[in-house]
Design a binder for these strands. Structure first.
Lengths: 187, 187
DNA sequence: CCTTTCCTTTGACAATTGTCAAAAAGCAAA
DNA sequence: TTTGCTTTTTGACAATTGTCAAAGGAAAGG
């Protein structure tokens, strides 16, 4: 659980009492490769912190699996739309490696927000940072070519390429697997 | 200022004291068409609520203006990256019509967060909703054709088409003006 | 070690979209 | 109305990317 504490502290310090309360509300989840944390059609009731392993979020469109994010160590993971809106989502969250996470339920988290304002603050701040990242990704998607997006990914997250299959990376970049393969061979 | 109160209340109720404190911290800004609320290279120090009018956010890339959002009545407006990170941004925010906004400085907002926890909560909740919208936009950008994105825009925001020029809409959709013109003529 | 399965590459071709240039249309001020 | 400016449309062509199909490689399990 140290990793989570360190991760949170990087965003904003929290009080010891808030951390203790949070610790008590967390449940450890260990699941093998290729299992599902969240499946489409269900309400995602938990926010997770990924301590070890690797996941992807994807949904099905016209019979294809569309991967739109990857999660690695020290990332917060949830089906955001469903978790926030309390409605069933279209998203599946699948482990790509054996993974260990810490989870907290929506109810428990919101109870903690009432009791520990510094916890609510740090979550607000983390949300803001995740928003900025999403904004950057949208810009890249909107105004860069496939090759530029791939090169940007290479720079910012070289580890993705070692842990994720080509087809899934292509989907994440919004291009076909064949195109990515060709970009990669410098053609 | 009623519009702002109603808008906030739709997300989450706030106490009268929080509203009164917020009201006092707000400054009204009225600026004519084609003027700038934020310019690239500066730190955006304010969060705005757009009461009347219409704006766009854009940045310059290879000599082109890349529009990546529009703001209409009852939207919250800021150069999010710069406002949150306190660093100079690349974004310009320009009025497309004569506009009236209410603004609050970063410092004042954060002071209010310390004093009025329900205000921090409603901002957290608003952030979350804006995150969800951004996520939807990213999905559309990643996995839909230009035509589909245009048709989706027609459905969700028909008013955009009446108030914004074609070139700017095309930029927002991530396509060239000529392509959008051809899509529009049903070719 | 072999088999089976999955992942990646390659080829051929089609569809989409971009770029450049020019014409047409719309709009506002004189 | 005319003039001048901006926006939108159209044409021709090039570049990018997608699709389908097949072949080559890598990896996992028996």
């Amino acid at each position: 659980m140290n990793a989570l504490f360190n991760c949170i502290s990087q965003y904003h310090p929290i009080s010891l009492s808030a951390w203790e309360a949070l610790s008590k509300a967390l449940t450890q989840v260990s699941i093998p490769r290729n299992s599902f944390l969240v499946q489409e059609g269900m309400v995602c009731n938990h926010l997770y912190f990924l301590e070890q392993g690797c996941l992807r979020g994807y949904y099905n469109l016209d019979g294809k699996e569309i991967t739109y994010w990857f999660g690695f160590e020290n990332h917060f993971i949830t089906s955001f739309y469903s978790f926030i809106s309390r409605k069933p989502g279209i998203e599946n969250i699948q482990t790509l490696e054996d993974s260990t996470l810490w989870g907290i339920s929506y109810e428990a988290l919101n109870q903690l927000f009432d009791l520990h304002k510094d916890l609510e603050r740090v979550v607000r701040i983390i949300n803001e940072q995740y928003y900025i990242r999403l904004e950057e990704r949208l810009m890249a998607m909107q105004f860069k070519t496939a090759r530029e997006r791939y090169e940007q990914l290479l720079e910012s997250s070289p580890h993705i390429l070692r842990r994720i299959s080509l087809g899934q990376i292509a989907s994440y970049l919004g291009i076909s697997q064949e195109t990515l393969s060709r970009i990669r061979s410098h053609v």
